[in-house]
């Protein structure tokens, strides 16, 4: 059942959410960038922006994530998990990012499940805003992750001009609405129809061009992408690893102890399969020594049938971030196109 909230009431809803927990929403920095940050008041929320380059996955998989506290007392050591049970609302997040979070959660739920991640995600309510005007670089339509969502959200807002239509899909979503129940009313039939029209229009926005993941996937899965092509493309990658930092579905990490003199925090730190020492073994052997091997790995993980079968989705939610962030020119759409055409930059 769909609800509606008048735009002028959203601030009051947010005030309620702020009392119930932490609210993380897009905020404009002093330098003009939009970053997902903890807010203290409703006015901080930015509504008018395509999407933030820095992904909200930071909330669930922080770049530096303390997981265990280790203390030495004389001869003995004590270890305790660092537990984060903060109730959080991720507010005004884009559809692709909500899908990305669902993807990460599925991954972390796989046996053996990661309790520290799941504690955070179980306490996180995802309130997304459907993209009535899709962003310029995104291609969520090809990856089934937008512009409107059918799943992967707790509550989805749609901008109807004067009000937001609010679709609630989970008990967490219901609880978020219940924090300020009186501000919501049932949506009218007209509003529901209007939402549908907006979705159709948004989908049309992507034009006729269909996605080419399928043919690329076939070639990647069966190792039919010529090595020479990988080699050629890999000269256009500058090995920054930025693609892994901003991608909503990337989750590579390392585990390191931070601290000194008997108190350490064991941290999960962000990593990237694009860095050469990522697979370096203690013996000096490196199974992915060349850049082309690592590049191949990235695209195998994201666009192979093998992973598609396991994850039930391609490892790309079409957010387009890698296009902006790639220091080289080897972002997802460019590489997928090159694989389909069998050539690069010609």
């Amino acid at each position: 059942m769909a609800l509606a909230i008048a735009k002028e009431n959203v601030a009051r809803w947010l005030e309620k959410l702020l009392q119930a927990g932490e609210v993380v929403a897009p905020v404009r920095s002093s330098c003009g960038d939009v970053l997902f940050s903890t807010i203290t008041s409703a006015e901080q929320v930015v509504w008018d922006f395509p999407n933030s380059l820095h992904p909200p996955k930071e909330l669930l998989l922080p770049q530096t994530d303390p997981i265990v506290r280790i203390t030495r007392r004389g001869q003995h050591h004590e270890v305790e998990p660092i537990i984060d049970r903060t109730r959080r609302f991720l507010f005004n997040v884009r559809s692709c990012d909500a899908k990305g979070i669902a993807f990460l959660t599925r991954m972390q739920e796989m046996e053996p499940a990661d309790a520290s991640y799941l504690r955070r995600s179980n306490n996180l309510t995802v309130i997304s805003l459907a993209c009535t005007t899709p962003c310029q670089l995104g291609f969520c339509i090809c990856t089934d992750s937008g512009p409107f969502l059918r799943d992967s959200y707790d509550a989805q807002l749609t901008d109807l001009g004067e009000s937001y239509l609010v679709e609630v899909a989970s008990p967490k979503g219901e609880a978020a609405v219940a924090e300020a129940q009186s501000l919501f009313r049932d949506a009218t039939e007209g509003e529901v129809t209007q939402r549908q029209k907006l979705e159709d229009a948004a989908r049309r926005h992507f034009g006729e061009e269909t996605c080419h993941f399928a043919s690329a996937m076939r070639r990647i899965s069966t190792c039919r992408v010529p090595d020479a092509l990988w080699e050629k493309m890999s000269d256009w990658c500058l090995e920054c690893g930025g693609c892994s930092v901003v991608c909503p579905t990337c989750y590579c990490f390392s585990v390191k102890d931070l601290g000194c003199d008997g108190t350490w925090i064991r941290c999960r730190v962000r990593d990237s399969c694009q860095y050469s020492a990522f697979t370096l073994e203690a013996s000096g052997h490196n199974p992915r020594a060349q850049r082309k091997d690592r590049m191949k790995r990235r695209f195998f993980h994201k666009v192979s049938a093998q992973y598609y079968k396991r994850d039930g989705a391609v490892g790309c939610v079409g957010c387009g971030r890698c296009i902006k962030v790639c220091l080289g020119t080897t972002h997802m759409p460019a590489v997928v196109a090159a694989i389909r055409k069998g050539k690069w930059h010609e």
Partner: peptide, 30 residues
Amino acid sequence: YLLAKDGQLVGVAPSETHLISEGRLCARGW
């Protein structure tokens, strides 16, 4: 952007508005 939490550095965020970076950084910057 250097990200800090409880007075500790925890990460880096890119800036699209910065004239030189335009949202990009190299492995060192990240």
